[in-house]
Simulated assay, not measured.
Amino acid sequence: MTDWAAFDNLHALGVPVAGVPASATPSYLAPLVPEGTPRVGSLQEPDIEGIAAAEPDLVIVANRSRPAYETLRQLAPTLDMTVDNADIVGGVKASLAQYGAIFGRQARAAALTAALDAKVKEAREAAAGRGSGLVVVTNGGRLGVYGPGSRVAWIYDALAVPSVFAGVDDGDHGGDAISAEYLSEKNPDWLFVVDRDAGIGQEGSARATLDNELIHGTTFWRKNQIVYLDPAAAYVTMHGVTGLMRLLDQVIEGYRGGA
């Protein structure tokens, strides 16, 4: 198991795992990892030797660990569960269905999928008619923006939140770099914030980065329409059903608590 979203989905299905990543453990998943579970390298660099020594029945790679696929498949049966960010909700449901079929958890997978569909519907209804949105990422005191097709595309696509721009180059870890002036000019009704620093286990910077005079004049700041997304779920495990449900709950709560 070289991916936290894979662990998330398998745990939700009741499937035990024989190893988990050694880095960027989401706080909401940490208590679910059985004590003594082997750690098999970082998200980007699985411990090939350690995995080989464990002689697993199945190895799972995904978005960050997939470069190791060709090496790992020579050691054991290996499954690539990479999810396309352009359809995260669909990808999570497909992952649940595939795991359910492999491990005989079809009924549980169907129940989780139904719950996810209901939560997406609830969030979409909460967002309807509430104005435009923008997803930003903070990273070491810098601001970036995420758009359709990114790791947070579900906010625009699945929830039909209108974006304030037509396109953005957000392939980097910190999104497409922007400034406070950009936020002031675009002035979205809602701001969704991903704190990358906190997401990878460092000290968070989001609230301090956004606290300046230019941003204080925006609609989202004046109306307190800022949703701080769970950093680990938004940056690391958005392809896991528990992580995505957690994010959807935060969006729903944000809209219900906004002006």
Rank of each mutant, 00 (worst) to 15 (best):
L43Y: 05
A259H: 13
A118C: 03
A127Q: 01
N187R: 03
D47C: 07
M245A: 14
G217W: 14
I178S: 03
A76P: 05
V136D: 04
F165E: 09
T82S: 14
D211V: 09
T113G: 14
L13E: 01
V17H: 02
T25R: 09
M245H: 11
G144E: 00
G14D: 04
G19H: 06
A198E: 11
W154P: 04
T219L: 14
A160P: 02
D170M: 00
D87C: 07
T219N: 13
R142M: 13
L116F: 06
A101P: 07
A76M: 06
P38S: 04
T219W: 13
I60K: 10
E253N: 10
P188I: 08
V145T: 05
M245D: 12
P26T: 03
A107I: 07
D157W: 06
V194N: 13
I51Q: 05
F165Y: 11
E55S: 14
Y156M: 00
S205M: 12
A128T: 04
A166Y: 07
Q74N: 15
G129W: 06
G141D: 00
D47A: 08
H11Q: 09
Y99I: 07
A233M: 03
S42T: 14
T71R: 14
K121Y: 08
N224F: 14
S150N: 04
A86Y: 03
A160T: 06
V20C: 10
K93M: 13
V227R: 00
R124M: 10
D47G: 05
A166T: 10
G201A: 09
M245V: 05
R39F: 15
L247T: 00
A12V: 06
S205G: 15
S150D: 02
A30T: 01
S95N: 13
T82P: 09
T138L: 13
S23C: 00
D117N: 12
R151D: 01
G41K: 05
V164W: 03
D84P: 05
G171T: 01
D3R: 04
L75Y: 13
Y255M: 08
G147Q: 03
L159P: 01
A101V: 07
L214I: 08
N139K: 13
A110H: 14
P67T: 04
G133F: 00
Y182M: 07
A180W: 06
I226F: 15
N9A: 11
K186N: 07
T237D: 10
E181Y: 06
V193L: 09
K186I: 04
H173L: 15
P34H: 05
A126P: 00
D87H: 06
T37M: 07
G167S: 11
D84F: 08
V227H: 03
G91P: 01
I226W: 12
E185R: 11
D195S: 14
V136F: 05
P162L: 13
F103D: 04
A198V: 09
G144N: 02
N187W: 05
K223R: 15
Y235I: 03
A166D: 12
Y146L: 12
I200M: 10
E122K: 12
A233C: 02
